[in-house]
Amino acid sequence: MAELSAVQPPETVFDDVEVPAVIHRIARGRPLRPVWRNALGGLTYEMPGFFVKFAPEGSGLPLRQEAERLAWASRFTPVPRVVDAGEDASGFWMLTEALPGRSAVDARWRANPEKAVQAIAYGLRQLHENLPVDECPFDWGVEYRLERSPRDLSHADEPHRSIPIDVAWARATDPPPVDQLVVCHGDACSPNTLLGDDGEWSGHVDLAALGTADRWADLAVASWALNWNYGPGWEPLFFTTYGIEPDPERIAYYRLLWDLGP
């Protein structure tokens, strides 16, 4: 689950957490491999051919929201197909089919960042082109996000952390005009793109924030995340591969909005 900023990845591989009873029931004796533990208590396990996510009751993790978005998006683009989902007193769970490929931040692709960056840009372009805006029931536009913002930059990346919150909020509430409305991923950071063994884009994961917005809402963050995961210097290749000239005004705006959350 990547609901929080990837500047400081909130997930850690784990093997010291008791498997929730509902996950044991879903597994039905199949082997479980712990994959991620979210800072808010969310758990992800892999079992043969599937992944299962669990959001504890009261965690606030938008797993139900992600299940709804995956069910819609899977008709148009390669994302995990929801096999089943449900909840009990302990929390909400979601079972999805595994997609082929490895995360773009897998050690194999960290060692070959050029291929990873190209796949990230190409995959994002495909997602923007293939998801039908007119049919999308989900919103991720500026107004939607500002209504849910905690108005807090204490955990933001520099240079945003040093901006007075009233100044940042004034900037955030004065957005640039929409360039092109698309269905955005909502968390287009590098880990959420998958690559096949041939280095080609194979799908996207973690779509809890998917919704309609200016394409720069994704582009600004996807390009920014390259610095966090591969080091500086990869943004030109990203924009060239996507097929667009950088827009400094929109990039600056949507990076600030990202740090203001959610």
Rank of each mutant, 00 (worst) to 15 (best):
G123L: 00
V22W: 07
D16A: 11
H185W: 10
H185V: 12
E3W: 13
E97I: 07
A168G: 06
A252P: 04
R151K: 08
G261P: 01
N130M: 12
L127D: 04
L257C: 04
T44Q: 15
A39K: 01
T193N: 01
A156M: 05
R108D: 11
P10H: 06
G49Q: 11
Q8C: 15
C184V: 08
D198L: 07
E143K: 11
A85V: 02
V7K: 15
G42M: 12
V79C: 14
E57R: 10
V13P: 10
L43K: 11
L131D: 06
A220H: 14
G60P: 10
D88K: 05
P150H: 05
H204G: 01
T173W: 05
D206T: 02
E249M: 08
E18W: 06
R161W: 04
S202W: 08
E11N: 15
R110Q: 00
T240G: 06
V133Y: 14
W228C: 09
W93S: 12
G49T: 09
P48W: 15
R64H: 02
V83Y: 03
S149A: 08
E235H: 07
A172G: 02
P137C: 15
L207M: 07
P113E: 00
P10G: 09
P176V: 10
A156C: 04
V117Q: 11
T241N: 09
W36Y: 12
L43S: 13
R30I: 11
L43T: 14
D84N: 06
P80H: 15
K53V: 05
V52I: 04
D174T: 14
H204Y: 05
V17K: 12
G233V: 05
W224G: 04
E68T: 13
L40N: 09
S5P: 09
A98F: 14
W258A: 00
Q118N: 04
S74I: 07
E143S: 11
L257T: 03
A39F: 00
V19A: 09
N112Y: 00
G203D: 02
G123F: 00
L40W: 02
H204F: 10
L95Q: 05
A222V: 12
T241G: 07
N112P: 01
V105H: 07
E46C: 14
N130C: 13
G101H: 03
S5C: 10
D166V: 12
L237V: 13
A55S: 03
V79D: 13
N112E: 01
E46G: 13
A39I: 03
W72Y: 12
A55I: 02
R30P: 04
E97M: 12
D157R: 13
E87L: 05
W72I: 08
D134H: 15
K53F: 02
T240D: 13
